[in-house]
Nucleic acid binder design. Structure first.
Length: 585
RNA sequence: GCGCCCGUAGCUCAACCGGAUAGAGCAUCGGCCUUCUAAGCCGAGGGUUGCAGGUUCGAUUCCUGCCGGGCGUGCCA
């Protein structure tokens, strides 16, 4: 409909242009928006205001000319010029009813479109280090990424979801050593736990399992572990200490045993994360291993490519990438003085790999604390010879947790964080998923656990689900009263839906496809949650104001078709958020 | 210091690439259950959109400065 009106206006403007009333050069895209106020009709365009200056004509006068030059259209009942020069369209009411037919024909496809034209989009999200269970901070990225992916798929993009597993690097070594030390404790060896080790209970659990499987096989005397190590914090440097401890573990255990403990930890944690996300409704097409990337030599290949382009140089024993020449604050190290590649280096290789896999567009969803990382990665992509615009980084602000007034500290190391699993068990998947995406991603979010945990009615997800359940309940009542639903009769009687509540619902239903489209293109799932709340609200109002199961069969069937369309739309919308649409509550 | 994000009703947030009278929920107050689920509905009050300028026919939206909050500024990941 919107497009149709746009074409009418474009035709009119073309005509004026040919008559010489409008200068040829000025090209302003013609936009038609839904009117916010029904007094302004169904749709409105500000085109006359935009072109007034160029035309050298008062906007109202220009609007009149445009309207006069516009072709007739049967679905437009009336056109008005209002305010400073808006062109308001009033649609023929009959055109509004068509939406019910459309929803019930398209069913779960309603709201899908092909604006993506099958373009391939790669979306990477969560990608938390496999050094511990996901905590509540990861939840927002998970809910956001998964919802955006669903929206894009609905908009006709071919979406590939990926989790980048940082299973290489120092953090994993720290985890390995942490597990081993807990294991030694289990064996009865007295080794103090390092200040920067992972303290969570899950480390003990993994160590306990390791002990059950392997017995004393990895036991080494405490003295041999501690002998000659530099002091740990607070007297010494905890980073130096943990590095020395890692080296010691490697020596005492040998590569094979060390690797076995590493594997045990990685697999246990990855399995946990995978299961956790799955229960959260988040699925991936691929779990991409950083280790595989490193071991296959692709990091060297990527660095070689940069080197050929003249982007690498050696300084103070390290190898640097000249990110400063491509908009970053300064140059960045890719290979450390000790010969180890940095996280950044493997990330360059990873993104090169994504680009080479032929995706038209890459979306990375990161926590906002990584924002400083964006320019250097964009610089790398440019240096690799690709258009940096192909990478889009979406920064999601952290959800700050509160228990009532009290701010909840969150640190993976401290081991006192709230896990995503705990949150899910307390408030349920539906509430958590919906809650997380209710705000726009760049907005800071206060997540009051007490409120979310309280199962109170404040949570909007229940409100939307309840609307769905209510429709289902009406259909159960229909059967109990011994009535048969007659869809065809209802369609023929749609013109009976003249109540203001019904008109409002029709208009809101018609907005669903464009809401999904916009939410997808702008990567803003919160637009969908707000829409669903509005649709549910209008339904509840309607429900209270009118009885659906009336004696008048054509009217009854028309209303049933309308509320069935509402139900379908709610189900579709919740589906995109991976929130269930219960038939009863 | 520099960089990024944010500042809208008592609280949590919307506001469709700048549009018409800035909207919801919660909380507060007052009503509605013999009739399709009251997890609901109806009504009332509540605003100098952090402050000061600028651009524009029009600014919560764009620009500049200031104030306040968060984050970043590693040969960490």
């Amino acid at each position: 409909m919107k497009d149709q009106l746009q074409r009418l206006l474009e035709t009119a403007i073309d005509r004026l242009r040919r008559q010489g009333l409008l200068p040829e050069q000025v090209r302003v895209p013609v936009r038609v928006d839904r009117a916010r106020d029904s007094a302004h009709g169904d749709f409105a365009s500000n085109i006359a205001l935009m072109l007034a200056k160029a035309a050298g004509m008062p906007p109202k006068k220009l609007a009149e000319r445009i309207v006069a030059a516009m072709p007739k259209d049967p679905s437009v009942r009336r056109v008005e010029i209002a305010g400073p020069g808006f062109i308001n369209f009033f649609l023929d009411p009959a055109a509004q009813f068509a939406i019910v037919r459309r929803v019930l024909e398209e069913r779960e496809r309603f709201g899908h479109s092909d604006i993506g034209r099958g373009r391939r989009i790669h979306i990477e999200f969560v990608s938390a280090n496999p050094t511990g269970p996901l905590h509540v901070g990861h939840g927002r990225g998970a809910a956001y990424g998964a919802s955006v992916a669903n929206l894009l798929a609905a908009a006709g993009f071919q979406v590939h979801r990926e989790y980048y597993v940082n299973d290489a690097g120092r953090q994993m070594d720290i985890l390995t050593v942490s597990i081993w030390l807990r294991y030694l404790e289990r064996c009865g060896e007295l080794v103090p736990f390092p200040a920067s080790g992972y303290r969570g209970d899950y480390v003990r659990d993994i160590a306990a399992r390791l002990y059950r499987q392997m017995g004393d096989a990895y036991r080494r005397p405490a003295e041999s572990v501690l002998e000659g190590l530099p002091p740990d914090a607070p007297e010494g440097d905890k980073e130096r200490y943990i590095d020395a401890l890692i080296d010691r573990a490697r020596k005492l255990l040998g590569e094979q045993a060390y690797e076995a403990i590493f594997r045990t930890g990685l697999e246990a944690i990855l399995a946990d994360i995978r299961e956790d996300l799955e229960a959260f409704g988040v699925c991936y097409d691929r779990w991409f291993s950083e280790r595989d990337l490193v071991q296959s030599g692709r990091v060297e290949q990527a660095l070689a490519l940069l080197d050929r382009g003249g982007w690498l140089y050696r300084k103070e024993g390290a190898i640097w990438f000249a990110a400063g020449r491509l908009g970053d604050e300064k140059d960045r190290v890719v290979v450390r003085e000790n010969g180890q590649i940095t996280y950044f280096a493997s990330d360059i290789a990873y993104h090169l790999d994504k680009l080479e896999r032929g995706f038209d567009h890459l979306i990375d969803v990161w926590g906002a604390d990584h924002h400083g990382y964006v320019p250097r990665l964009k610089a790398a992509i440019q240096a690799l010879g690709a258009d940096p615009e192909r990478l889009e980084v979406r920064l999601v602000q952290f959800a700050v947790l509160y228990r009532g007034r009290e701010k909840v500290p969150m640190s993976t190391r401290a081991g006192e964080f709230v896990t995503l699993r705990q949150l899910r068990e307390e408030v349920g998947r539906d509430a958590a998923r919906f809650f997380y995406v209710m705000r726009k991603p760049e907005q800071h979010m206060d997540f009051d656990l007490e409120l979310a945990v309280s199962q109170s009615n404040d949570n909007p997800v229940y409100y939307v689900q309840y609307a769905h359940a209510r429709v289902c309940s009406v259909f159960r009542q229909l059967a109990e009263k011994g009535w048969q639903r007659d869809v065809a009769q209802g369609m023929d009687a749609l013109t009976r839906l003249t109540e203001p509540h019904e008109q409002a619902l029709l208009a809101t239903l018609a907005r669903y496809p464009e809401t999904v489209e916009r939410a997808a293109l702008q990567r803003e799932p919160h637009q969908l949650t707000h829409y669903l709340r509005e649709l549910a609200g209008e339904f509840h109002t309607y429900y209270n104001a009118h009885t659906f199961l009336v004696e008048d069969a054509p009217l009854r069937n028309a209303r049933l078709n309308l509320i069935d369309a509402v139900r379908q739309t709610i189900a579709n919308g919740l589906g995109l958020l991976d929130v269930s649409a219960p038939e009863s509550m």
